[in-house]
Design a protein around this nucleic acid. Structure first.
Length: 268
DNA sequence: AGGTCGACCTGGCAGC
DNA sequence: TGCTGCCAGGTCGACC
């Protein structure tokens, strides 16, 4: 899905656009995105007011005046767009008390929406690690985790039980800026390299949030517009192109079944 | 127990 | 043009 910066951008757009509005009508165009019975979903949402909009990892949490939450996982291609034009991928439509509409679009239908009374009922929220900006994500925590695993650092950054919200683009960019090879094994990361990875994680994600995320293909913010971090991407999806630092070609390898992009000269 | 690998879906693009 | 195969910001669960 969109990763942390993209989901945070959607969250902010929704907070600016539809906070405190009431859901008047729900239209289910494609019920495959629901993780509960459609009638139950509608019953628990209709007439409810959205009182807070939060994010945890890559999940959005819309808190309702019923003390329940609408949890949205947009996964790879989900979009939440305020006052957009419905299209072939529009799966849900919410009519709001303000006269606005909120669309849930999702090309690949991987996304999931459900209403729960307690988010802890969803496994994702029980197993997810610290937010990258949280004090809990510090060098001591990282060192403790890294020393007991033989997995490559790229896979560890992608593991949301280690840290929440990092996906394939930002894992590659964080490691490039850190000068660390994605193949380095967790327990071989040196003590003095850990704060570098931590700081680059925070800096890259903050910069991406500032630029409203990256749009490789499908992603748009709550305003329906693409993100601008693409201009700052230095390795992701740049296989064969010159490294921006040393001009050696960026290479692509497969790790845990996913593409990794890096510079063999700059990253060790 | 830790780690890897399909499955879930649709669609764009390169190559023939 | 049209086919085939590959690839895609994620996550879970089955399997080694």
């Amino acid at each position: 899905m969109p990763e942390l910066p993209e989901v945070e951008t959607i969250r902010r757009d929704l907070a600016n656009g539809i906070l405190n509005s009431t859901i008047k009508k729900i239209t289910i165009i494609d019920g495959r995105v629901l993780r509960q019975d459609a009638a139950d979903f509608m019953r628990r949402l209709k007439g409810r007011t959205i009182v807070a909009i939060k994010r945890r990892g890559k999940a959005l949490i819309l808190e309702l005046d019923s003390n329940e939450c609408l949890v949205v996982a947009v996964m790879m291609t989900g979009q939440l767009v305020v006052d957009g034009q419905a299209n072939a991928h529009t799966r849900l439509k919410f009519d709001l008390s303000t006269g606005q509409t909120l669309l849930y679009n999702d090309q690949r239908v991987f996304g999931q929406l459900r209403v729960v009374s307690d988010i802890q009922a969803i496994k994702y929220f029980r197993i997810i690690g610290p937010e990258p900006f949280d004090h809990a994500f510090d060098a001591a925590y990282m060192a403790g985790y890294l020393k007991k695993t033989k997995r490559p650092i790229k896979n560890i950054l992608l593991d949301h039980t280690f840290v929440a919200g990092i996906g394939n683009i930002y894992a590659c960019e964080i490691l490039f800026r850190s000068g660390i090879s994605p193949k380095r094994i967790g327990d071989k990361i040196k003590r003095n390299e850990i704060p570098i990875i931590r700081q680059q994680t925070i800096d890259v994600l903050n910069e991406a949030i500032r630029l409203r995320g990256s749009s490789m293909r499908n992603y748009v913010g709550g305003d329906g517009k693409k993100g601008q971090f693409n201009k700052r991407i230095e390795v992701y999806a740049r296989e064969g192109n010159a490294c921006v630092v040393c001009t050696a070609p960026v290479v692509r390898i497969i790790q845990a079944g996913r593409s990794t992009f890096y510079c063999m000269k700059c990253q060790h």
